[in-house]
Amino acid sequence: MEFLRPATWDEALAAKAEYPTALPIAGGTDVMVEMNFDVHRPSAILDLNRITELTQWSNDGGVVRLGASVPYARIIDELSGPLPGLALAAHTVGSPQIRNRGGVGGNLGAASPAGDSHPALLAAGRDVFVEAASVRGTRLIPIDDFYVGVKRNSLAADELIRAVHIPVADGPQQFSKIGTRNAMVIAVCAFGFALHPKDGTVGTGIGSAAPTPRRAVEAEEYLRGVLAERGLWESGDLLGTEVIQRFGELVKAAASPIDDVRGTADYRRHALAVMARRTLTWTWNDYSKQIRSAA
Protein backbone atom coordinates (compact mmCIF):
# COMPACT_ATOMS: atom_id res chain seq x y z
CA MET A 1 0.00 0.00 0.00
CA GLU A 2 1.33 3.40 -1.04
CA PHE A 3 1.19 6.18 1.52
CA LEU A 4 1.12 9.59 -0.16
CA ARG A 5 1.64 12.69 1.90
CA PRO A 6 1.45 15.83 -0.29
CA ALA A 7 2.54 19.13 1.23
CA THR A 8 0.39 21.37 -0.97
CA TRP A 9 -3.00 21.28 -2.61
CA ASP A 10 -1.43 21.13 -6.08
CA GLU A 11 0.70 18.17 -5.02
CA ALA A 12 -2.41 16.50 -3.68
CA LEU A 13 -4.23 16.95 -6.98
CA ALA A 14 -1.21 15.64 -8.86
CA ALA A 15 -1.06 12.61 -6.59
CA LYS A 16 -4.77 11.91 -7.02
CA ALA A 17 -4.34 12.17 -10.81
CA GLU A 18 -1.48 9.70 -10.69
CA TYR A 19 -3.20 7.34 -8.24
CA PRO A 20 -6.93 7.68 -8.96
CA THR A 21 -7.75 4.73 -6.64
CA ALA A 22 -5.94 6.37 -3.71
CA LEU A 23 -8.26 6.81 -0.72
CA PRO A 24 -8.06 10.34 0.72
CA ILE A 25 -7.72 10.53 4.49
CA ALA A 26 -8.04 13.54 6.75
CA GLY A 27 -9.39 12.92 10.26
CA GLY A 28 -9.41 9.17 9.59
CA THR A 29 -12.48 8.66 11.76
CA ASP A 30 -14.22 6.67 9.05
CA VAL A 31 -11.39 5.46 6.80
CA MET A 32 -9.37 3.92 9.63
CA VAL A 33 -12.36 2.14 11.15
CA GLU A 34 -13.18 0.56 7.80
CA MET A 35 -9.58 -0.44 7.25
CA ASN A 36 -9.35 -1.98 10.70
CA PHE A 37 -12.43 -4.03 9.91
CA ASP A 38 -10.82 -4.98 6.60
CA VAL A 39 -13.69 -3.44 4.62
CA HIS A 40 -11.27 -1.52 2.43
CA ARG A 41 -7.82 -2.46 1.28
CA PRO A 42 -7.00 0.62 -0.81
CA SER A 43 -4.00 0.52 -3.11
CA ALA A 44 -2.89 3.87 -1.76
CA ILE A 45 -3.74 6.31 1.01
CA LEU A 46 -3.63 10.02 0.28
CA ASP A 47 -3.02 11.87 3.52
CA LEU A 48 -4.35 15.44 3.35
CA ASN A 49 -3.31 16.46 6.85
CA ARG A 50 -0.38 18.60 5.74
CA ILE A 51 -2.63 20.85 3.67
CA THR A 52 -3.62 23.48 6.19
CA GLU A 53 -6.00 25.40 3.92
CA LEU A 54 -8.43 22.49 4.19
CA THR A 55 -8.89 23.28 7.88
CA GLN A 56 -9.87 26.90 7.24
CA TRP A 57 -13.21 28.58 6.58
CA SER A 58 -14.28 32.00 5.37
CA ASN A 59 -17.54 33.92 5.40
CA ASP A 60 -18.24 36.67 2.88
CA GLY A 61 -21.49 37.54 4.59
CA GLY A 62 -23.61 35.55 2.16
CA VAL A 63 -21.83 32.22 1.88
CA VAL A 64 -19.57 30.24 4.15
CA ARG A 65 -16.78 28.43 2.36
CA LEU A 66 -16.02 25.57 4.71
CA GLY A 67 -12.69 23.75 4.23
CA ALA A 68 -13.16 20.02 3.84
CA SER A 69 -11.16 19.21 6.98
CA VAL A 70 -12.54 21.80 9.41
CA PRO A 71 -13.33 19.52 12.34
CA TYR A 72 -16.85 19.27 13.75
CA ALA A 73 -15.68 20.68 17.07
CA ARG A 74 -14.73 23.94 15.33
CA ILE A 75 -17.99 24.02 13.34
CA ILE A 76 -19.79 23.94 16.69
CA ASP A 77 -17.55 26.57 18.28
CA GLU A 78 -17.10 28.93 15.36
CA LEU A 79 -20.01 28.50 12.97
CA SER A 80 -23.13 28.00 15.06
CA GLY A 81 -24.27 31.50 14.02
CA PRO A 82 -24.04 31.32 10.22
CA LEU A 83 -24.60 27.54 9.96
CA PRO A 84 -26.90 26.59 12.84
CA GLY A 85 -28.28 23.42 11.22
CA LEU A 86 -24.85 22.03 10.44
CA ALA A 87 -23.61 22.95 13.92
CA LEU A 88 -26.51 21.03 15.48
CA ALA A 89 -25.67 18.06 13.26
CA ALA A 90 -22.02 18.35 14.26
CA HIS A 91 -23.06 18.05 17.92
CA THR A 92 -24.41 14.57 17.21
CA VAL A 93 -21.26 13.22 15.55
CA GLY A 94 -19.50 10.50 17.56
CA SER A 95 -17.57 11.44 20.69
CA PRO A 96 -15.49 14.55 21.52
CA GLN A 97 -12.42 12.77 20.12
CA ILE A 98 -14.20 12.09 16.83
CA ARG A 99 -15.50 15.64 16.63
CA ASN A 100 -11.95 16.91 17.10
CA ARG A 101 -10.76 14.93 14.07
CA GLY A 102 -13.63 14.42 11.66
CA GLY A 103 -15.00 16.98 9.20
CA VAL A 104 -17.64 17.45 6.53
CA GLY A 105 -15.24 16.52 3.70
CA GLY A 106 -15.02 13.00 5.09
CA ASN A 107 -18.78 12.72 5.38
CA LEU A 108 -19.14 13.79 1.75
CA GLY A 109 -16.34 11.53 0.58
CA ALA A 110 -17.85 8.48 2.24
CA ALA A 111 -21.36 9.53 1.11
CA SER A 112 -22.94 7.17 3.59
CA PRO A 113 -26.69 7.69 3.89
CA ALA A 114 -26.07 7.81 7.65
CA GLY A 115 -23.57 10.70 7.53
CA ASP A 116 -24.73 13.34 10.00
CA SER A 117 -23.83 16.37 7.86
CA HIS A 118 -25.94 15.49 4.87
CA PRO A 119 -29.45 16.35 6.11
CA ALA A 120 -28.19 19.71 7.33
CA LEU A 121 -26.45 20.45 4.01
CA LEU A 122 -29.57 19.53 2.03
CA ALA A 123 -31.79 21.62 4.30
CA ALA A 124 -29.47 24.61 3.88
CA GLY A 125 -30.88 24.96 0.38
CA ARG A 126 -30.22 24.28 -3.26
CA ASP A 127 -27.33 26.71 -3.31
CA VAL A 128 -25.06 24.43 -1.35
CA PHE A 129 -22.12 23.35 -3.50
CA VAL A 130 -19.32 20.89 -3.08
CA GLU A 131 -16.10 22.39 -4.41
CA ALA A 132 -14.35 19.55 -6.22
CA ALA A 133 -10.95 19.96 -7.79
CA SER A 134 -8.58 18.02 -9.98
CA VAL A 135 -5.57 18.78 -12.14
CA ARG A 136 -8.18 19.48 -14.81
CA GLY A 137 -9.71 22.33 -12.84
CA THR A 138 -12.31 23.15 -10.21
CA ARG A 139 -16.07 22.70 -10.35
CA LEU A 140 -18.94 23.37 -7.97
CA ILE A 141 -21.27 20.38 -7.65
CA PRO A 142 -24.77 21.28 -6.43
CA ILE A 143 -25.55 19.28 -3.29
CA ASP A 144 -28.64 17.86 -5.03
CA ASP A 145 -26.40 16.27 -7.66
CA PHE A 146 -23.76 15.05 -5.26
CA TYR A 147 -25.24 11.88 -3.74
CA VAL A 148 -25.72 9.29 -6.47
CA GLY A 149 -26.03 5.92 -4.72
CA VAL A 150 -25.31 3.95 -1.56
CA LYS A 151 -21.94 5.28 -0.44
CA ARG A 152 -21.38 6.77 -3.89
CA ASN A 153 -20.95 10.42 -4.85
CA SER A 154 -20.48 12.24 -8.14
CA LEU A 155 -16.77 12.90 -7.75
CA ALA A 156 -14.56 11.83 -10.64
CA ALA A 157 -11.72 9.46 -9.85
CA ASP A 158 -9.12 12.21 -10.01
CA GLU A 159 -11.10 14.74 -7.93
CA LEU A 160 -10.70 15.78 -4.31
CA ILE A 161 -13.15 17.70 -2.12
CA ARG A 162 -11.65 21.05 -1.24
CA ALA A 163 -14.53 22.86 0.45
CA VAL A 164 -18.27 23.18 0.77
CA HIS A 165 -20.11 26.40 0.01
CA ILE A 166 -23.09 26.91 2.30
CA PRO A 167 -25.32 29.97 2.31
CA VAL A 168 -25.37 31.81 5.62
CA ALA A 169 -28.63 31.03 7.38
CA ASP A 170 -31.33 33.63 6.81
CA GLY A 171 -33.81 31.93 9.11
CA PRO A 172 -34.04 29.34 11.87
CA GLN A 173 -32.61 25.87 11.21
CA GLN A 174 -32.93 22.62 13.12
CA PHE A 175 -31.50 19.13 13.08
CA SER A 176 -32.75 15.99 14.86
CA LYS A 177 -31.33 12.51 14.87
CA ILE A 178 -32.57 9.23 16.25
CA GLY A 179 -30.10 6.90 17.93
CA THR A 180 -30.68 4.01 20.29
CA ARG A 181 -28.43 5.59 22.83
CA ASN A 182 -28.01 9.14 23.95
CA ALA A 183 -24.56 9.80 22.43
CA MET A 184 -21.96 8.23 20.14
CA VAL A 185 -24.42 6.58 17.85
CA ILE A 186 -24.91 6.13 14.12
CA ALA A 187 -28.19 7.61 13.03
CA VAL A 188 -31.18 5.29 12.85
CA CYS A 189 -32.61 8.19 10.89
CA ALA A 190 -32.13 11.95 10.92
CA PHE A 191 -33.87 15.06 9.68
CA GLY A 192 -32.61 18.54 8.88
CA PHE A 193 -34.91 21.50 8.38
CA ALA A 194 -34.38 25.17 7.52
CA LEU A 195 -36.58 28.17 6.86
CA HIS A 196 -35.36 30.46 4.10
CA PRO A 197 -37.48 33.61 4.46
CA LYS A 198 -35.43 35.57 1.92
CA ASP A 199 -36.61 33.52 -1.01
CA GLY A 200 -39.68 32.09 0.66
CA THR A 201 -38.52 28.48 0.53
CA VAL A 202 -37.89 25.79 3.12
CA GLY A 203 -35.19 23.13 3.09
CA THR A 204 -35.36 19.52 4.23
CA GLY A 205 -32.87 16.69 4.45
CA ILE A 206 -33.50 13.05 5.31
CA GLY A 207 -30.68 10.85 6.59
CA SER A 208 -30.45 7.06 6.99
CA ALA A 209 -33.83 6.40 5.47
CA ALA A 210 -33.06 5.92 1.79
CA PRO A 211 -30.12 4.69 -0.31
CA THR A 212 -28.78 8.25 -0.29
CA PRO A 213 -29.38 11.34 1.79
CA ARG A 214 -32.37 12.99 0.17
CA ARG A 215 -34.64 15.97 0.18
CA ALA A 216 -38.38 15.65 0.91
CA VAL A 217 -39.32 17.59 -2.22
CA GLU A 218 -43.09 17.38 -1.92
CA ALA A 219 -42.99 18.40 1.70
CA GLU A 220 -40.87 21.42 0.82
CA GLU A 221 -43.23 22.41 -2.01
CA TYR A 222 -46.31 21.94 0.12
CA LEU A 223 -44.98 24.11 2.90
CA ARG A 224 -43.63 26.75 0.54
CA GLY A 225 -47.09 26.99 -0.97
CA VAL A 226 -48.91 27.21 2.35
CA LEU A 227 -46.55 29.85 3.71
CA ALA A 228 -46.92 31.97 0.59
CA GLU A 229 -50.67 31.56 0.10
CA ARG A 230 -51.53 32.39 3.67
CA GLY A 231 -49.05 35.23 3.98
CA LEU A 232 -47.43 33.52 6.90
CA TRP A 233 -43.93 34.76 6.16
CA GLU A 234 -45.24 38.26 6.77
CA SER A 235 -47.62 37.56 9.63
CA GLY A 236 -45.63 34.94 11.48
CA ASP A 237 -48.99 33.45 12.54
CA LEU A 238 -49.33 29.92 13.86
CA LEU A 239 -49.17 27.17 11.24
CA GLY A 240 -51.90 25.06 12.77
CA THR A 241 -51.78 21.35 13.47
CA GLU A 242 -53.16 20.38 10.09
CA VAL A 243 -50.23 21.94 8.22
CA ILE A 244 -47.69 20.51 10.63
CA GLN A 245 -49.30 17.09 10.40
CA ARG A 246 -49.40 17.17 6.62
CA PHE A 247 -45.78 18.25 6.43
CA GLY A 248 -44.81 15.29 8.65
CA GLU A 249 -46.74 12.89 6.44
CA LEU A 250 -45.04 14.20 3.31
CA VAL A 251 -41.58 13.87 4.87
CA LYS A 252 -42.44 10.35 5.88
CA ALA A 253 -43.62 9.59 2.35
CA ALA A 254 -40.36 10.86 0.90
CA ALA A 255 -38.32 8.25 2.72
CA SER A 256 -37.65 4.73 1.47
CA PRO A 257 -36.02 3.08 4.45
CA ILE A 258 -35.10 -0.56 5.06
CA ASP A 259 -35.11 -2.86 8.07
CA ASP A 260 -31.62 -3.36 9.46
CA VAL A 261 -29.84 -3.96 12.77
CA ARG A 262 -30.28 -0.32 13.73
CA GLY A 263 -34.03 -0.13 13.29
CA THR A 264 -37.06 -1.05 11.24
CA ALA A 265 -38.33 0.72 8.14
CA ASP A 266 -41.66 1.38 9.85
CA TYR A 267 -40.00 2.97 12.84
CA ARG A 268 -37.82 5.15 10.62
CA ARG A 269 -40.85 6.45 8.74
CA HIS A 270 -42.70 7.09 11.98
CA ALA A 271 -39.76 8.87 13.57
CA LEU A 272 -39.19 11.05 10.50
CA ALA A 273 -42.76 12.29 10.68
CA VAL A 274 -42.34 13.13 14.36
CA MET A 275 -38.99 14.89 13.80
CA ALA A 276 -40.41 16.78 10.84
CA ARG A 277 -43.34 18.04 12.91
CA ARG A 278 -41.16 19.00 15.83
CA THR A 279 -38.40 20.74 13.87
CA LEU A 280 -40.97 22.65 11.86
CA THR A 281 -42.67 23.74 15.06
CA TRP A 282 -39.40 24.85 16.68
CA THR A 283 -38.19 26.80 13.67
CA TRP A 284 -41.54 28.40 13.02
CA ASN A 285 -41.89 29.43 16.66
CA ASP A 286 -38.46 31.06 16.47
CA TYR A 287 -39.29 32.76 13.19
CA SER A 288 -42.62 33.94 14.49
CA LYS A 289 -40.94 35.45 17.54
CA GLN A 290 -38.49 37.31 15.28
CA ILE A 291 -41.31 38.71 13.16
CA ARG A 292 -43.28 39.82 16.18
CA SER A 293 -40.34 41.42 17.94
CA ALA A 294 -39.48 43.24 14.70
CA ALA A 295 -43.05 44.46 14.31
Binding site: L88, H91, T92, Q174, F175, S176, K177, I178, G179, N182, A183, V185, V274, M275, R278, W282
Partner: peptide, 9 residues
Protein backbone atom coordinates in the same frame (compact mmCIF):
# COMPACT_ATOMS: atom_id res chain seq x y z
CA UNK B 1 -34.13 11.34 25.87
CA UNK B 2 -31.98 11.71 22.76
CA UNK B 3 -29.80 14.32 24.48
CA UNK B 4 -27.78 16.32 21.94
CA UNK B 5 -29.45 14.41 19.11
CA UNK B 6 -32.00 17.16 19.69
CA UNK B 7 -35.15 15.13 19.19
CA UNK B 8 -37.30 16.78 21.83
CA UNK B 9 -37.56 20.16 23.49
Amino acid sequence: PGALSNTSH
